[in-house]
Simulated assay, not measured.
Amino acid sequence: MNAWDGISEFIAVSERQSFTAAARQLGISVAQVSRQVTALEEKLGTQLFYRTTRKVSVTEAGQIYYQHCRQLLDGLGEAERAIGNLTEVPRGKLKLTAPTTYGETVIAPLVNDFVARYPDLEVQCRFTNQKLDLVLEGYDMAIRLGRLEGTTGSLMTQQLSTRRLYACAAPGYIAKRGEPHSLSELNHHNCLVGTLDYWRFEEDGRERTIRIHGSIHANSGQALLDAALKGIGIVQLPDYYVDPWIASGDLIPVLTKYQPSDEGIWAIYPTNRHLSPKIRMLVEHLGRYLGQ
């Protein structure tokens, strides 16, 4: 016998507890199923099933053999799907969520490029700063920034790139109020407050959170950026907000020796037995460009 002969028949009978049901599942005759299973038992030198006129049950040896054979058959199916996916192209629907500003300014153009390349793909994007439940709300993928606190075991994660936080102020603000050189000096400055009322720094290799206060509170990075550019106060924002303004000199980084470590930018998607081409290839596309 070939090493695989009788395996599919044996597994079908084990799971269906019936030669007739196994034959129906495999689309072959009951006699053929019986011949294959009997030949397998003779090859192994052991009985795999107890057979009566009313019932078929798996022997102890059959149960052990089934566990190993099921894994082998599943692995073969995975291998075939993996090879098949190499030649597949993204198609169908893909539901994606990302943080509002980062999604609109960075993720959306990259997704649009991807859809332009694969016109059989339809992408639905929702940009929100809420942490949506991917499984419950039917999302294929989420882009998350920073720490992945609370990520469950039902999700897979892949880091695409990093982001850096900058504390910075306009030259006009620094000329008027001076530049802070220590974290304690922030108490004497107008700090533009976002969703959280503290900023993160690192001092002597340890993370520090500094409570801040100021004349403007906003749950919008763009609003805080505008206030900083107008010289109203100091702001702490990710690089994708402030990089162009730092490069032009309209914002000046401060407290750079307390710069916090870079944070991750992540793709998160529900755990599946095999990653579909549309998700796998979009993750690769985003990682390739964000990594630059």
Score class of each variant (00 low, 15 high):
residue 40 L to C: 05
residue 163 R to K: 11
residue 143 I to G: 00
residue 96 L to D: 00
residue 193 V to W: 00
residue 45 G to T: 12
residue 3 A to K: 14
residue 232 I to Y: 01
residue 114 F to Q: 02
residue 248 S to C: 09
residue 31 A to T: 13
residue 261 S to M: 10
residue 179 E to L: 05
residue 101 T to S: 13
residue 77 G to L: 11
residue 222 Q to G: 02
residue 132 L to C: 03
residue 51 R to Y: 03
residue 35 R to F: 11
residue 274 H to C: 01
residue 66 Y to G: 01
residue 188 H to L: 11
residue 147 R to Q: 09
residue 32 Q to E: 14
residue 84 G to H: 09
residue 90 P to Y: 05
residue 20 T to G: 03
residue 98 A to W: 05
residue 42 E to L: 12
residue 237 L to P: 01
residue 104 E to S: 10
residue 152 T to L: 09
residue 97 T to L: 08
residue 128 T to R: 08
residue 225 L to E: 00
residue 39 A to R: 15
residue 140 D to K: 05
residue 244 P to C: 07
residue 235 V to C: 08
residue 279 I to A: 06
residue 93 K to D: 13
residue 67 Q to E: 14
residue 117 R to H: 10
residue 1 M to D: 13
residue 32 Q to L: 10
residue 235 V to S: 03
residue 148 L to N: 14
residue 203 E to W: 03
residue 210 I to C: 04
residue 257 K to F: 01
residue 13 V to Q: 07
residue 4 W to P: 03
residue 224 L to A: 04
residue 262 D to F: 03
residue 89 V to D: 05
residue 8 S to Y: 06
residue 156 M to I: 11
residue 42 E to A: 12
residue 244 P to L: 08
residue 290 L to P: 00
residue 183 L to V: 06
residue 155 L to P: 02
residue 256 T to F: 02
residue 76 L to G: 05
residue 268 I to N: 02
residue 15 E to Q: 15
residue 216 I to A: 02
residue 197 D to V: 00
residue 13 V to G: 07
residue 118 Y to I: 06
residue 104 E to I: 12
residue 173 Y to K: 04
residue 25 Q to N: 11
residue 63 Q to M: 07
residue 20 T to W: 05
residue 138 G to M: 04
residue 98 A to Y: 08
residue 233 G to Q: 04
residue 221 G to T: 07
residue 189 H to Q: 13
residue 93 K to Q: 13
residue 97 T to M: 09
residue 111 V to N: 02
residue 57 S to E: 13
residue 2 N to S: 15
residue 280 R to L: 11
residue 58 V to N: 01
residue 172 G to A: 15
residue 136 L to V: 06
residue 268 I to D: 03
residue 211 R to L: 08
residue 90 P to N: 08
residue 170 A to W: 03
residue 279 I to G: 00
residue 111 V to Y: 03
residue 59 T to S: 13
residue 49 F to I: 07
residue 254 V to Y: 01
residue 258 Y to V: 09
residue 27 G to L: 13
residue 71 Q to V: 15
residue 58 V to H: 01
residue 292 Q to T: 12
residue 2 N to F: 12
residue 163 R to D: 05
residue 219 N to P: 03
residue 94 L to S: 01
residue 43 K to W: 10
residue 74 D to Y: 12
residue 192 L to E: 06
residue 159 Q to V: 09
residue 230 K to N: 09
residue 133 D to M: 06
residue 151 T to Q: 10
residue 223 A to Q: 11
residue 286 L to C: 07
residue 168 C to Q: 07
residue 203 E to K: 14
residue 43 K to G: 03
residue 88 E to C: 10
residue 141 M to Y: 01
residue 73 L to D: 06
residue 17 Q to S: 14
residue 227 A to F: 00
residue 92 G to N: 07
residue 220 S to F: 05
residue 124 Q to C: 05
residue 164 R to S: 15
residue 85 N to A: 09
residue 190 N to C: 14
residue 6 G to F: 00
residue 9 E to S: 15
residue 249 G to S: 08
residue 217 H to K: 14
residue 95 K to I: 13
residue 213 H to A: 12
residue 123 V to G: 10
residue 282 L to D: 00
residue 82 A to M: 05
residue 68 H to D: 10
residue 184 S to P: 00
residue 200 R to T: 15
residue 289 Y to R: 14
residue 35 R to T: 11
residue 24 R to A: 15
residue 275 L to E: 10
residue 122 E to Q: 15
residue 240 Y to A: 05
residue 255 L to A: 06
residue 2 N to M: 13
